[in-house]
Design a protein around this nucleic acid. Structure first.
Length: 464
RNA sequence: GUGGGUGUAGCUCAGGGGUAGAGCGCCUGACUGUGGCUCAGGAAGUCGCGGGUUCGAUCCCCGUCACCCCCCCCA
């Protein structure tokens, strides 16, 4: 086996069938985002290295760096890097074009990003993100609308079991402060607590112990982050018919949970008020009944400053996430512009949709409606002429290029799912006619060449 | 980065110290202007790579690489 024909690890080739599926999903997401007034944006694959550094926290080791070129290449130094996400490039763009862009500015962006991660199920080194962001407003309307747009897109894609988990960075900070966790230990502690939904309470306690936390400190943290679930009955009622592990909660349940937290963490007051507003507003959107408050949701990126969100379905990691990042743009321009966004992971969505068979059958389309078959080289000219004629009547037409045995040509068309073959032999050419063979019902009929297009269109319509 | 598993034909995989197998796919013909079925034939593999043991290794041993799963992290 000749080695080295596989694409780089964690990166994929997309064969025609793959591209159709991807474009189907991207098309739906775009259409939904456009409905909310988001505008398209694209940025280069690479950014100056300094643009990316210092924005992500300790995930920076996963950035794909690009060596300096030419005579400087030997230094092994990098000056560029492939973009790690779409949010930091957006912040750069907004800082760069402040005068040109409206405020608020709403944009969506669907492009690949690169991470030097170890590939795994639903995890790639090159993958597409579908970002929506609103810049220039601190209103909770922004968060609520983003949740609504994401829920709308998921629903249009056919998902019925997704949940948007919600939390707040400032609330997390207040919670950790209240239990005596030092600010420089916040991130590491949060990363551990974030695993509550995956490894459970025991797993988290073990990991905290391994990180050197005292038994008392762990108790205090768990009491706050993983309290016994008094409302479990309410929740299970609310999620009747849903089989996912993440339970959406009615807005009232979310508000009750937040009220309870306020007593324990008075310093989280403004964050809690903010979350309540978001949840209440989101009730008026497609996110209604999809949102749940999750006090252990942390998210790794360090640029978040306010509300944080994560989109989940059962069986795979998150399908997307986002949050508010009011200070990021200021890192580029000096002028603080508040911002909030949400990112959908296209590949994860595709993995789940493929497993669940969520693509419409019409996606398995053929490359053409008609294939023109000929018997000898002399037929090539007439074949191309009639192909052109058929295209003008709105059909997708390909010409089989070689005068292979006719059976082989028909077999090719059949194998590609092309429903009709236009047979153009000596007899037909002489008579100015063409034989149209319907592969599905094995019938064929000879037409005047000028009438063939209409006949095929009609037959196609009847097939649906 | 950790633990486990797998590397044999284009694909899915079987086998086994003595020059390599199946199914599917592909090509040719039966059928010189008609596909899905059938039949006959054919092409195609330094058995992941390097070393060791052996008269002889694809098989046993050591190393190495790649891929898959778990942990980890994320989209």
């Amino acid at each position: 086996m000749p080695a080295g024909t596989a694409p780089p690890s964690g990166m994929r080739d997309f064969l025609p069938e793959d591209v159709r599926r991807r474009e189907y999903v991207i098309g739906i997401i775009k259409r939904v985002y456009e409905r909310y007034g988001f505008e398209p944006l694209e940025t280069p694959a690479a950014e100056n290295l300094e643009t990316l550094l210092g924005k992500y926290g300790d995930e920076e080791k996963l950035i794909f760096k690009i060596l300096r070129r030419g005579e400087h290449e030997a230094t092994g130094q990098a000056d560029l890097a492939l973009r790690y996400d779409l949010t930091v490039p957006l912040a750069r763009v907004v800082a760069q074009y402040q005068a040109k862009l409206p405020r608020p500015f709403k944009r969506y962006q669907i492009q690949p990003v690169w991470r030097a991660d170890r590939p795994g199920r639903g995890r790639f080194r090159e993958f597409y993100q579908c970002d929506v962001d609103s810049l220039g407003s601190t209103s909770p309307v922004v968060e609520a609308e983003l949740c609504g747009a994401v829920a709308d897109a998921m629903t249009e894609l056919g998902f019925s079991d997704f949940v948007i988990r919600l939390n707040h960075r400032q609330l997390l900070t207040a919670m950790l402060d209240s239990r005596g966790v030092k600010p420089n230990e916040h991130m590491a502690t949060l990363v551990t607590l974030d695993k509550l939904d995956k490894v459970g309470r025991e797993g988290v306690e073990k990991e905290l112990e391994a990180r050197g936390r005292s038994r008392d400190a762990i108790e205090a943290l768990m009491e706050l982050f993983a309290p016994p679930q008094p409302s479990a009955a309410t929740i299970s009622k609310a999620m009747e018919g849903l089989r996912n592990a993440y339970a959406p909660s009615p807005a009232s349940v979310v508000r009750d949970a937040l009220k309870g937290l306020l007593d324990a963490v008075p310093h989280g007051q403004s964050a809690i008020a903010n979350l309540k507003e978001i949840v209440t507003l989101a009730e008026q959107t497609k996110a209604k009944g999809r949102i749940t408050f999750d006090r252990s949701l942390a998210r790794g990126l360090s640029y978040y400053t306010g509300a944080i969100m994560e989109l989940n379905v059962d069986g795979i990691g998150s399908l997307g996430g986002g949050g508010r990042y009011d200070n990021l743009i200021g890192m580029f321009s000096g002028q603080q512009i508040p911002a909030c966004g949400f990112s959908l992971g296209l590949e994860r969505i595709l993995v789940v949709m493929t497993e669940r068979g969520m693509f419409p059958p019409s996606l398995a389309t053929s490359p053409a409606d008609v294939m023109v078959a000929t018997f000898d080289a002399a037929g090539a000219g007439p074949a191309m002429r009639i192909a052109d004629q058929l295209r003008q009547s709105g059909l997708r037409v390909m010409v089989y290029p070689d005068p292979d045995r006719i059976g082989k040509q028909i077999k090719y068309a059949d194998g590609r799912g092309i429903p009709f073959v236009a047979i153009l032999g000596e007899d037909e050419i002489r008579a100015g006619r063409v034989t149209i063979k319907n592969l599905a019902d094995r019938t064929q009929q000879t037409y005047e060449q000028s009438e063939a297009g209409a006949a095929i269109r009609e037959a196609l319509q009847q097939r649906g």
